[in-house]
Each structure stands twice: as structure tokens, then as C-alpha cells.
Design a binder for these strands. Structure first.
Lengths: 155, 155
DNA sequence: TATTGTTATACTCTATAACTATA
DNA sequence: TATAGTTATAGAGTATAACAATA
């Protein structure tokens, strides 16, 4: 949104938005939202509770509920009681869910390859650079606490 | 939100979000929102109507209205009748607005320098790479038409 | 008493539609 | 008839708070 040159904020915002649009479209062909894919992917990795997946995916637990509702309705995931904590539920992928996650991962990988492909050998530099900004210790590291801004901006 | 590796979407989303948080905080010290700064900056460039600024800033015209209301209340901008079209209004910055825009631009430049500084000489490569993705003809170019997704995602 | 997941609700942000005045 | 700006309203998305079951 800013107007300094070279406008880092603009570049990064547009990249984020455009990529989201592309991913949304690509996943929509498979009947998935980006968030559903994200949750399904983490669920397919192993025994995780709703809360754990919510934390990994940076989702509110209430958002997690509706996302899982959707995945269950679609027959892609199931909530199964945790054997160790009767309050908690593990998220299990169904066979259909597992198959779809793999298909979706391939679709996304193709998309990334297409996008980054235009950079040629500098492709690595961009990804590395972004990781250095966003990763642990970087100036744009997402520190889980200070995360949510929550202020009303008023115009 | 995705989980492919290296996860371009995650990197870019987090960079965008973190930078927005930093910019919001930095500008809040000056009493500005990012959007107000963006509009004020474009207004300071010369004779532009609300509609023209809205288009440049990728804002809806109704969002423009409330943003300008805020800027006028704060004494940073004024709406002046267009001499050539009595329907239109030009956005003029006040002296206070002009001074604040300059201060804000410096604050943001400092922030960018701080963030990009950690990359050292690869700084250019990152910015260039992002521009190649997002800029005209790039795989993530924002084409003004297909811009808004507007679909209900349902879980 | 604290925590997992659920429900219901409120809030923020932004777009849509309808309107006025000009062109 | 179309456009600039305004107003009022509705929609999507997400968080907050209160609750039930269990730890």
C-alpha cells in the first residue's frame, strides 16, 4: 500500500495476493480451499489434534472447527477421539482425502515451478532472501505472540 | 497457507503480513494508517481526482470516501472542486499533510532499509526478483480486470 | 482450576446498490 | 445515457465470550 521506491511493501503484497488468487483457482478445480488444503496436509502428516493443527496453521480454534466441518462433509477427513485425552480429537484423513492432498500438492508444486521458473537461476536467491527475512531471527520473523494486530484503524 | 517446500506462498504471505504490521506500527506513531499515507502520498504528487487516486491505490471509490473523510478530519487533506468538471473533486494536501507525508516517507524508507539491510548485496536480487514476478508480463502480474476474486469460500 | 472443542455472537472491513449532481 | 462522489446497507471473514466435557 505504500509508495516508496523500490516499494517493498507493494511488491510483497501483490506477490502474496496474486499467488493466493492463483492457488485458490488451482485448488478450486480440486474442490478445495487453500485453508482446507493446508489443514488436510498437516493432518495427513500424522496424529495431530485439532488444536495442534490450528497452531501450526496459525488458525483460530473456532476457524479450525468450521474448516474441519467442511472437510468432514466432503468426506476428506474425520475427527477421531484421542486415545490419550478424551477432550481432544485427532484429525485423520480419509483415503479420498489422502489422495486429494497428493494431487493438490502436485498442482501447487507445478504452480510454484511455473511462477519461479521465469527467474531462472536467480530463483534460489529469491527464495533464500525471503526466508532470511521471514525465518527465525529475521527482521520479518513472525513471533507467535505479537502476531495479531487487532487494532481498529478508523479510515 | 500451503505446505509445499520451499513454500513460496508461506514466505510471501508472512513477509507481506509482517511488513504490514511493522508499517502500521511505524505510521501509527505519526497518526496515520497505511492507507491514509498511501492516498496522501498520491495526492501530494499533484492534481488528481478522488477517482484517479482510488484507481492508482487500488481502492474502491467508497473506501476512498471514508479514507478522505479521515484525512480531512485530521487536517491533512482537502477536497477542492475540479475546475474542469463540476462533478469531480481534486484532493489537495494541506501544509500539515505535506509535512507529514515527507516524515512518513522517511520512516518507511528507514524501515525498508532496516529490513533489506540484513540481505547485504543480495538485497537487489530480491527486489528485482519480486519485481519480475509481479511486474508487467510477470507470472504474478496484477491484471486490473481479473483482480477481485469475490467468491464465497465456504469453510 | 485449566484446557479441548463447540456454539453463538459481535465486530471489522469492504463491496454493492441506490441516489444526487453533473456531463 | 453515463460518470463522480456520497450514503446506506449487506456480505464475508474472523475473533470473542460463554459453555460442556474432561484433565
Amino acid at each position: 500500500m505504500a509508495r516508496v521506491s523500490p516499494d517493498l511493501s507493494f511488491l510483497v503484497d501483490k506477490a502474496s495476493e496474486s499467488l493466493a488468487v492463483r492457488m485458490t483457482a488451482a485448488l478450486a478445480d480440486l474442490g478445495l480451499t487453500a485453508r482446507q488444503y493446508c489443514v488436510l496436509d498437516k493432518a495427513s502428516a500424522g496424529d495431530r489434534t485439532q488444536g495442534q493443527i490450528a497452531e501450526e496453521a496459525l488458525l483460530d480454534k473456532t476457524t479450525m472447527v468450521t474448516t474441519l466441518d467442511g472437510l468432514e462433509r466432503a468426506g476428506l477427513a474425520r475427527r477421531v477421539p484421542s486415545p490419550t485425552d478424551r477432550r481432544a480429537r485427532l484429525v485423520a484423513t480419509t483415503d479420498a482425502g489422502e489422495a486429494l492432498v497428493e494431487k493438490a500438492a502436485a498442482v501447487i508444486q507445478d504452480l510454484y515451478d511455473e511462477v519461479l521458473g521465469v527467474l531462472g537461476p536467480e530463483r534460489e536467491a529469491l527464495v533464500d532472501g525471503l526466508f532470511r527475512l521471514v525465518g527465525p531471527g529475521g527482521p520479518l520473523a513472525v513471533d507467535a505472540d505479537a502476531a495479531r494486530p487487532r487494532r481498529s484503524s478508523r479510515a
